[in-house]
Design a protein around this nucleic acid. Structure first.
Lengths: 348, 348
DNA sequence: TCTTCGCACTCAAGCGCTTTAGCTCTGACG
DNA sequence: CGTCAGAGCTAAAGCGCTTGAGTGCGAAGA
C-alpha cells in the first residue's frame, strides 16, 4: 500500500527571498507592486514566486491588517423552503464570476431566520472572517443595516430600496413599482379589471413595494377590485389562495404571482376548478425560469437576468472594499415575456 | 450627516489577559480547555471573554498552525445549467447544519468545469483557505481524487462509489444499482418490457452506475428492448429525447428520467404527441421535489433525503478533520414514491 | 570636495494566536 | 530540614505577511 505521502509544503515568502537573494520585505514590495525595488529585482522575484507556485497565505495577510479576502453571503430561510428556486443559484453564480476574478472567496451560510443571520454577521466580524457581506431579502423593519453599520462591515443590499438612513450601505435594486405599473397597464389594456396579486412574504421589502405599487395603479385607474394577498411563496399556498380566489362570486380575471413556483401551482389549481388559462383567467409569474415552460400553457413571466444582478452586486461590493463610496444602482426593470398564459379578459 | 462611527475594535486575548489579570498564555490555555490553569482562573477568563464578546481570530488561529476552520465546496457547472435544481441547495443546507455546530465556515465556489475546479483546490490549498473539501459529481476518470491526495487535503466524495485507489478519501454514497434493480423490478411486475432510461451526463460516475445496473437487470430478465440514453439533464434534452423515443415504431412503455426536470419536460412532450401518462407510458423521476407535484399527473419519483445526505457528508468530513480514518458510508437507498405517473403496461 | 538627496534595499516590529520551555511556589516525602 | 514533583503560571518564539524606520550608496548640487 502506498505510504501516505506527507502533504507538500507550501512555499513562503522566505523561500522566495532566499532563492532570489533578497530580503523578505523586498519580496513583499515586489509582489505587491509597491515602490522600493528595481524593475530587475521585481521581475526576478516574480519569476521565482511563479516557479515555486507561491500564493499568499490569506491567514497571514489577514493577520497583518489586510482583509481576509473573503465576502459573506447568508441565506436566511428555513431549510424546507429551499426548494425549487433558480434565483439564488444564479445570483450566486453571477457574484462568483466577479469575486473569482479578484481572488475573493465567498463564505456561504444558510440560517433559519434573520436573527440567526445577524448572529452570523457578528461572528464573522469577530472572527475576522469576511471583509464585507452581501445581504439579500431586505425586509421592512430590517435589523441588518443597523447591525452592519455598527460593525462597520461593508455591505451591499440586494433588492432593497434606496435607503437614506444608512449611507454606508450600497444598494442594488430593481424598480418593482415601475414593473408593476407596466404590468397593470398591459392587463388593463387587455380588458382586465379584477386583478389579484398573489404576493410573497409580507415581511419582505419588495413585497411591500409591489403591493403599494399595485394599489397606486389601481387607484389611478379607479379599479376597485384589485388586491394583494401575501403568502409564503410555496406551491401549496399558491394553489390554496388561487382556489379561494376563483371560487369567490366574482373571481378575478388576472392573477399576478410573485414567483414562478406559485404561478405553476396556481394554473394547476385553476385547471382543477375548470378554469381555462388564459381564456377564463390570465396568469403572470413574477420570475422567469425553465418552470414556466414546463407547464401548459407556457407562462408569461417577468424575466430578469439574475446572473447579471449578482455580477452587479458583487461589483458594488468590491468597489466598497476598495474604499469607494456607497452607491445605489438600479438594474434594468424586469421584462415581460409574453407566452400563452395571458390574453384578453373574458367578454372582451 | 452622521459622522461615520469608527468600527468597534475587536477584543483580543491581550484584552482578556489584562482584565483577568493573567498572561496571554493562561488565557489561551483556559479558553482551549488545556491543562495548565486552575478551575477558578479558567472560569474567570471564560467570563471575561464572554463579557467582552471575544471570538478567536480565524486568521491568527490559522497562522499558528491550527486549521482555517473552513471547508470548501465547488460546484462545477456552467452557469446556465444552474437552473431549477433543489438538490444542491438542500445538500448545502444539510452540510451547513453540521458545520455551523462546529463553527466551521463553508467556502463556496462555482466553476465552469472540473479543470477549473482543480485549480480552485490548488489555490485554496496554497492560500491556506480550507482544511478540507466536499467533492460532488464524481466522474468516471476523475482527476480530483489524485489531486486531493497530492495536496493532502482531507476530502469526502459525495455520491461516488467506494474507491480503493484513494484510501485517503471518505465517500458517502447511495446504492444506485440497488435502486435501479428495485425500480426495474417494479416496472417489470407491472408488465413493462420496453423500458428506457433517460440518463444524465455520461461523464458522471453515478450515471454509469445506473446504466450498468439497468443493463444487468435487463440481462437477468432477458429484456431485449431496454436502453439508456445520456443527456445534459436539461428540460430541452429531456423533451427532445422523449419525442424521439415515442415516435419510434415500437415506443417504450416506461421511461426512467435521471432527474425531475427532465421527467416533467418528458410528460409534457408525451402529452403533445398524444400519449397519455400513465395509460400509454409510465414515467418515473429519479429525484423528487415539489416539481413532481406541479404537473398532472403527479410524478412517481425516487425520493431521497438530500438534507440528510448533506449532514452525513459533513459529518464524515469533520471526522476526517479530527484525524479520524477515511470511511465509506452508504446512505439509504432512495425510496420510490408512487404517485400517478406509473401504471400497468398497455395491454395488460 | 563635501553635503544632500533619493533610490534600492534590509531590519525589526507587529498582527492574534499557540506552544514550548522555564520559573515559582506549595506540599509531600525521606 | 532538604529535596523533589507537580500544579499554576509567565516569557518568548514562531506562524507568514506588511510596513515604518533605518542603512548604504552613487549621483547631483554647492
Amino acid at each position: 500500500m502506498p505510504a501516505k505521502r506527507p502533504a507538500a509544503r507550501r512555499p513562503t515568502m522566505k523561500d522566495i527571498a532566499r532563492r532570489a537573494g533578497v530580503s523578505e520585505s523586498a519580496v513583499s514590495f515586489a509582489l505587491n507592486d509597491r515602490p522600493g525595488v528595481s524593475e530587475v529585482t521585481r521581475d526576478r522575484v516574480r519569476r521565482v514566486a511563479e516557479q515555486l507556485g507561491w500564493r499568499p497565505s490569506t491567514a497571514a495577510r489577514a493577520l497583518s491588517g489586510e482583509g481576509s479576502a473573503t465576502v459573506g453571503f447568508v441565506l436566511a430561510r428555513p431549510a424546507h423552503t429551499l426548494g425549487v428556486d433558480s434565483f439564488f443559484l444564479q445570483l450566486v453564480s453571477g457574484i462568483q464570476e466577479v469575486l473569482a476574478d479578484r481572488h475573493l472567496g465567498l463564505l456561504f451560510q444558510v440560517a433559519p431566520d434573520v436573527e440567526d443571520e445577524c448572529a452570523v454577521y457578528r461572528r464573522w466580524w469577530a472572527e475576522h472572517r469576511v471583509d464585507g457581506v452581501l445581504v439579500v431579502d431586505p425586509r421592512t423593519d430590517d435589523p441588518r443595516p443597523d447591525l452592519l453599520d455598527e460593525l462597520g462591515l461593508p455591505a451591499v443590499v440586494i433588492g432593497g430600496a434606496p435607503d437614506e438612513r444608512h449611507p454606508g450601505l450600497s444598494t442594488v435594486w430593481a424598480d418593482d413599482a415601475g414593473a408593476m405599473a407596466a404590468l397593470v397597464d398591459g392587463l388593463h389594456a387587455l380588458g382586465h379589471r379584477r386583478i389579484v396579486h398573489i404576493a410573497g412574504l409580507p415581511g419582505l421589502a419588495h413585497t411591500q413595494r409591489r403591493i403599494r405599487a399595485l394599489r397606486a395603479e389601481a387607484g389611478r385607474r379607479g379599479l376597485g377590485e384589485v388586491e394583494s394577498v401575501t403568502t409564503d411563496y410555496s406551491d401549496a399556498e399558491g394553489a390554496a389562495v388561487t382556489r379561494r380566489l376563483l371560487e369567490a362570486p366574482a373571481p378575478p380575471t388576472a392573477l399576478i404571482y410573485d414567483n414562478d413556483v406559485m404561478a405553476v401551482a396556481g394554473v394547476a389549481a385553476a385547471a382543477e376548478l375548470g378554469f381555462s388559462v388564459p381564456a377564463d383567467v390570465s396568469v403572470v409569474a413574477w420570475e422567469d425560469s425553465a418552470l414556466c415552460r414546463m407547464v401548459k400553457p407556457w407562462l408569461s413571466a417577468l424575466s430578469r437576468d439574475s446572473v447579471e444582478f449578482g455580477r452587479t452586486a458583487a461589483t458594488e461590493l468590491t468597489a466598497l472594499l476598495d474604499g469607494g463610496p456607497a452607491r445605489t444602482v438600479r438594474v434594468p426593470v424586469p421584462r415581460l415575456i409574453e407566452r400563452d398564459s395571458t390574453g384578453p379578459a373574458r367578454g372582451i
